[in-house]
Design a protein around this nucleic acid. Sequence first.
DNA 1: CACTTATCTGGAGCACTGATCCGAATAACC
DNA 2: GGTTATTCGGATCAGTGCTCCAGATAAGTG
Lengths: 197, 197
Amino acid sequence: MRADARKNRDHLLAVAGTAITEQGVDASMRDIARRAGVGLATLLRHFPTREALLEALLHTSFDELTTKADELEKSASPEDALVSWLRDCVAWTTEYRGVTVLMAAAIEDTESALHASCVTLRAAGARLLARAQAEGAARGDIDGTDLFALIAALAWLGDQPSLAPRADHLFDVVASAILTSAAGGPAGEERRPRTRG
Amino acid sequence: MRADARKNRDHLLAVAGTAITEQGVDASMRDIARRAGVGLATLLRHFPTREALLEALLHTSFDELTTKADELEKSASPEDALVSWLRDCVAWTTEYRGVTVLMAAAIEDTESALHASCVTLRAAGARLLARAQAEGAARGDIDGTDLFALIAALAWLGDQPSLAPRADHLFDVVASAILTSAAGGPAGEERRPRTRG
DNA sequence: CACTTATCTGGAGCACTGATCCGAATAACC
DNA sequence: GGTTATTCGGATCAGTGCTCCAGATAAGTG
């Protein structure tokens, strides 16, 4: 890759990062190019599709999440590891407004530039889930894809301005559905933390 | 309203119904007008925004859902009424691909043409929820807005082609989180409370 | 029936989107 | 310094939702 091309690529990635953080993943490609002081064609040659751009941008974040899953698998209880990782996943998506829809589309689309990353993420979650299920800490009738879908749904909630205020609370509700031990009590009863101690 | 205008309006509604059923709520306004053999301006005068068009189109569906809630409130047990109505809501959205996002936006946007309908729907759900909570059949730490958000999230899942196959199952998972009764999932998986024993 | 008027219509055009083409600029190599 | 393969970005295209306005037309009146 030629030196000028490399420079342009790096600069475009930096500018795209701020633009997408500000305006969400639907930020105008033309606008990103403009803010980078570059023609639209240049942006589109480096990143032929919006997904390709996002892949380059989010790659490290994906890696961090899978690494985190590995760490939690060793350090925390199955239950805490699962819930804590889920929370991290959902929290992460809030940085990139709108990314959920693209991830949902990418998980089954082998052509998508985001496909591999999404599959890796699902696998990491599946491992944590299986570990929790083996101990009876998580219900047995869900798998990695279900988990991915639940993460996506909760992340989508956080993306909707009107529903976002409830996202944290509803995370707890859904988490309680995943965990076997939180099968509920009478109405109004306070749910107690169940950290293994 | 002039006779020709009325005729155009009715025809546009019919055409829009089929177009949206086929292509989802993001169907091109220009395309709808074209299929109705009418100029784009004519469509947009009758329905100034896409939401106005949808409101006219979905109004009866909304009414049916609220009516259904009233009926269930009288005929079924609090728990069955709530779950059955939730299922109906989620199932209904599958007819109009993409409507979830608009509804989520409309619930807090008093300017939206869909606002009133969404608020009514939320109120209907809130009544069923409150009734279930009063009997201890549903957890007490959620309200009508939470319920609306959960419906929206589950409907969104059904909208995503890659996640849709899990939507029904995940509905059960979320439903089990709403219901207090530990007598559990239709999946019949063992749920061993860890506090026992 | 003839005429006026208020209403409705839809093509043309706006600014915007992602995507593609291709002549011009330029870095890399000899 | 010269050659060549790469990269660049303005111009352009088809598409979107939306607005304007001159012309068509239905409804009301004498």
